[in-house]
Nucleic acid binder design. Sequence first.
DNA 1: TGAAACTGACACGCCATCGTTTCACAAGTT
DNA 2: AACTTGTGAAACGATGGCGTGTCAGTTTCA
Lengths: 228, 228
Amino acid sequence: MSAGTKPPRTAKPAHRRKRSGQYAGKSAAARDAERRARLIAAGIRLIGRHGYAATSIDAICAEAGLTKRYFYAAFDGREALLVAAYESANRDYVQAIMQAAMPHLQDSRRLVHCGLTACFEWVAAHPDEARLIMLEAIAVRGQIGSVYGERYDEFVSMLVGFTKPFLKQQSPSDACLRVMAKAAIGAIIHLCQGWIATDFRQPAEQLVEGMERIFSGMAKELGVAERA
Amino acid sequence: MSAGTKPPRTAKPAHRRKRSGQYAGKSAAARDAERRARLIAAGIRLIGRHGYAATSIDAICAEAGLTKRYFYAAFDGREALLVAAYESANRDYVQAIMQAAMPHLQDSRRLVHCGLTACFEWVAAHPDEARLIMLEAIAVRGQIGSVYGERYDEFVSMLVGFTKPFLKQQSPSDACLRVMAKAAIGAIIHLCQGWIATDFRQPAEQLVEGMERIFSGMAKELGVAERA
DNA sequence: TGAAACTGACACGCCATCGTTTCACAAGTT
DNA sequence: AACTTGTGAAACGATGGCGTGTCAGTTTCA
């Protein structure tokens, strides 16, 4: 609030003295961040494994090896943790896909193939995180809805932006392109949901191939050039 | 259990005599069914409006104008009601789409158009039911998972079956076709989810057009004939 | 060394929900 | 009429999570 970094001039003798906050070799902020990270990690594990509804704050604290005190110091409540966990996992997910796709911006087929492969591989490699962002967080109202909404719209815009250079002159309206982009995202998420729910039995290559054909069809429909 | 329809020959005077079960002009089975239906309707309303997590059994009973006694007579618990509500709403949904699509089995373009239009119109006309089957039921483990799984696989098979007559000779493997069908379903569901979450602001025609283009692209990719 | 802050573990009161049970009354049967 | 069954409302004990508070012990710093 109005607490400056300096102690007040009318210093009480030894009271209210400035403290470095060092403890166990770490600064206060570092300790807070570390605890927060442990809570988020524990939350992802438990929510991903047993579901959000079945995950209590006590259980999260036990999993993290911390007590409730630190939970309430870091989060307002259960949903705040869910939001944080969602954002953390989702960032990882998008980043993994981006990293795999970015080197192939010039070749649409390879772009799609590498992006899809990275997507499904990440899901299989991070089942808890995937469950969280693709199943558990869907129905949760409140905060997540808005966060999801904002980031999501940005992401859709980015996808459309990436695609546009490949398009012919008379392409459909932006509204239509956005709908198609959302549809493609939904298709992938839905496949992942089913894949997760059936314990990854189906080989990832089949999923990649199916989605590649969908994208290939969209390319045919929109009349894309092979290179921008 | 072993209670026959006839009273035992050694009839106790007035005890254990056969009762019609009539009450308020209805048979026992009819009253049970009516109560069950009212509970399901109340469940759909409340879950669709406030979410599954925020809907208590007490609230459902109050909404239905019944008491908990009848709830536990009809369902084992909250999740059993959710399953019943899900099945009821989902049946309505699929039926509405089928009814709109069946008359156009010969014309793939019209088939797709009418099916999609019916789909989005049903969602807009039944927001509570749509929320329930597309958002709330997703994350619920347990019973719904399996129900969803069985029906869903059948539905995918049916879709692939409908499509096959239109396909060229060398079409992709069945596994691939099934993946593509699931992807299309996921695309539609995802669009509906976003549409619901934004209070149906976007005109339905835009959603239909976007999905039509997706299907058109799939048709191009698979090389379908205009008529079977 | 002494004071203050930080830590970890536990205990408390609160409250909502669950699932069952009880009870008086209404509606039917003989 | 008498007697049984169905009904509706309420009460009940049990459970479990939530959010806060307490307290002894440890680490840091003057």
